[in-house]
């Protein structure tokens, strides 16, 4: 069992947990993920590693309460235990020694983006970040990014914080201003990552995305997380989760994420969880 050593509510739908998981904490690197399960009847859910502490042997995860299983996870308190917590899974992010990298985060995407940009900054890369959210409260970790980012841009749908608009509005402005960008790392909802690629592709800017398809085992066994990248089938769990965004088939991924929508909304009706 894996104890929750700290829990924090970040906004009305997003929470943070720090979990004691020695096997994961000893080995994990930026870009990798874990799979957890709550209770003997629970589902296995993948979550990207937001931070880790090798000494305390803990892993930080951030999750949005979107359905039944995240609701069950959210019902746990500090001191409670998570039934299963396995990792690190996936390939670590390849950190290129670029001059300048722009990170783009949507919603909980801030969490997996954070360790990647921090690692780049530690290598001497100049990093900027664009954080987006529906409204101010959904913009996560702007302060934490400020510790190492040269510029922290914020975009909200309603203009309640930063610029009114989407992350792509800001990214487009930076490109139009003629800024040199060696790589964009975009992590967030699939439609957002697709939109980011829509902006970077015409300028042929290297764009890395972190994909989050449906998974079960996370070790390459079930084949559920397959995505089409450059016309080939890849398993996000063992080949990814990071891929070259310029050649990812986002429409297929968006469709595949709806595979169990009908069953899941059925459970959410039973349990009163909003989706």
């Amino acid at each position: 069992m894996y104890q929750i050593v700290k829990k924090e509510v970040l906004n009305d739908v997003v929470e943070l947990m720090e979990v004691h998981a020695p096997h994961v904490a000893r080995k994990c690197e930026a870009g990798q993920f874990i799979i957890l399960r709550v209770g003997e009847d629970g589902e296995r859910i993948p979550l990207t590693i937001a931070d880790y502490d090798r000494e305390k042997e803990t892993i930080t995860i951030i999750y949005q309460i979107v359905g039944y299983s995240t609701q069950v996870l959210a019902s746990l308190k500090e001191g409670d235990e998570i039934t299963d917590f396995v990792g690190p899974l996936g390939e670590p992010t390849v950190l290129h020694q670029h001059e300048r990298v722009v990170g783009v985060a949507g919603g909980v995407g801030s969490a997996p983006l954070y360790p990647q940009l921090r690692a780049l900054a530690q290598k001497g890369v100049k990093v900027d970040v664009i954080i987006g959210g529906r409204e101010a409260q959904y913009v996560l970790w702007a302060d934490k990014f400020k510790e190492f980012c040269e510029n922290v841009y914020i975009a909200t749908d309603d203009g309640s914080l930063g610029q009114k608009g989407w992350v792509t509005t800001v990214l487009q402005q930076l490109i139009d201003e003629g800024q040199t960008i060696d790589e964009v790392i975009a992590i967030g909802p699939v439609p957002m990552m697709k939109a980011v690629v829509g902006v970077t592709k015409p300028h042929n800017i290297k764009t890395s995305v972190s994909l989050n398809p449906i998974m079960i085992d996370g070790t390459g066994m079930c084949g559920c997380c397959r995505v089409t990248v450059d016309g080939k089938i890849k398993f996000a769990c063992v080949d990814g989760p990071d891929f070259d965004g310029l050649v990812v088939d986002f429409d297929e991924l968006i469709a595949r994420q709806k595979m169990f929508k009908r069953q899941e909304s059925h459970v959410c009706n039973l349990t009163g969880v909003k989706r």
Binding site: I216, D217, C222, G223, C224, T228, A255
Partner: peptide, 13 residues
């Protein structure tokens, strides 16, 4: 990769 296509491993798991 259409929805409704499973690897047997996924289906059985």
């Amino acid at each position: 990769n259409l929805n409704g296509v499973y690897a047997a491993n996924e289906f059985l798991t």
